[in-house]
Each structure stands twice: as structure tokens, then as C-alpha cells.
Simulated scan of single mutants.
Amino acid sequence: MYQFLVSFTVQPDRRDDFVRAARRTARDSLANEPGPQRFEVVADEENPDVFYLNEVYADVDAFNAHAAGPYFAAFFAEAGAYAEGPTWLMRGNVVGDKAAA
């Protein structure tokens, strides 16, 4: 499995918009793409303007397909107007996973 964690800093008056856009992307990606396994939208416990996307894919090729797809593009077209990021915090393959070989 390929997994990553990214952060975004969102304009305070656009937090709800960011959450809606990220959750819509999660829903559509999980329902319509073959590789996503988990897509979580997480709010930082100390800074209400920071959000994390924790995503898991079958492998890096599945993530690359997602990144080239319409849901990814739509998310960045919208969120790019009011969110800074992504800041890559972690990315890699689960140790011992056959997909990582």
C-alpha cells in the first residue's frame, strides 16, 4: 500500500468550503477510482486553519492515476483559491506490503 499525509493551511473564512471540497473528492475518488483505499480529512487539534489529508492507495501507480484524474483536478481548481499546500508530511509504502516490492 502507498500512503501519504499532506497538510493545507486554509483561509479562516473558507474552512467549511475546504472541508466540503476535500470530502467530495474523497467520496468521488473512493467510489469511482480503482486504487484508493482510504481518504480521510483531518482537522488539526491546535490550529483551526490547518487540515490534513491522509490517503491510502493500492500502490503508487493508483495514486498517480488519481493525481491525473478529474477529482484531483477539481479539488485543486477550487481549493487552490483559498488554501496553501499541500505540504508533504509523509509518503511511502507500508513496510512488508507486497505492493511495495
Results as ranks from 00 to 15, higher is better:
1 M>E: 08
3 Q>R: 13
3 Q>C: 10
3 Q>E: 11
4 F>V: 01
5 L>T: 13
5 L>V: 15
7 S>E: 11
10 V>R: 01
10 V>T: 03
13 D>R: 08
13 D>P: 03
13 D>C: 01
14 R>C: 06
15 R>K: 14
16 D>N: 10
18 F>E: 10
19 V>N: 00
19 V>Y: 00
20 R>V: 04
21 A>E: 11
22 A>F: 08
22 A>R: 05
23 R>F: 00
24 R>D: 14
27 R>D: 14
27 R>Y: 09
27 R>T: 13
28 D>W: 00
28 D>F: 05
30 L>K: 06
30 L>F: 09
30 L>M: 14
31 A>L: 12
32 N>R: 13
34 P>H: 12
36 P>Q: 06
37 Q>Y: 05
37 Q>P: 04
38 R>T: 09
40 E>R: 14
41 V>G: 00
41 V>M: 03
42 V>D: 07
42 V>F: 12
43 A>M: 10
43 A>R: 15
43 A>F: 05
43 A>E: 13
43 A>Y: 03
44 D>Y: 02
45 E>F: 05
45 E>G: 14
45 E>M: 10
45 E>K: 12
46 E>P: 01
46 E>N: 08
47 N>V: 11
47 N>L: 07
47 N>W: 04
48 P>W: 03
48 P>Y: 03
50 V>T: 12
51 F>M: 05
51 F>G: 02
52 Y>L: 07
53 L>M: 14
53 L>S: 02
53 L>Y: 01
54 N>A: 12
55 E>V: 02
55 E>N: 02
55 E>M: 01
56 V>C: 02
58 A>R: 15
59 D>K: 09
59 D>S: 10
60 V>E: 14
61 D>Y: 04
62 A>T: 08
63 F>Q: 09
64 N>E: 15
64 N>L: 14
64 N>C: 01
65 A>R: 15
65 A>S: 12
66 H>F: 13
66 H>M: 04
66 H>T: 08
66 H>G: 09
68 A>H: 07
68 A>L: 05
68 A>F: 05
69 G>N: 12
69 G>M: 07
70 P>F: 04
71 Y>F: 15
71 Y>C: 00
72 F>C: 11
74 A>N: 09
76 F>R: 13
77 A>W: 01
79 A>I: 11
79 A>G: 07
79 A>P: 00
80 G>Q: 00
81 A>N: 11
82 Y>Q: 07
82 Y>G: 04
83 A>S: 14
84 E>S: 15
85 G>P: 06
85 G>V: 07
87 T>V: 15
88 W>V: 13
88 W>Y: 11
89 L>K: 10
89 L>I: 10
92 G>P: 00
92 G>W: 02
92 G>E: 03
93 N>E: 10
93 N>V: 09
94 V>D: 04
94 V>T: 14
95 V>T: 11
96 G>S: 08
97 D>H: 14
97 D>I: 02
97 D>K: 07
99 A>K: 03
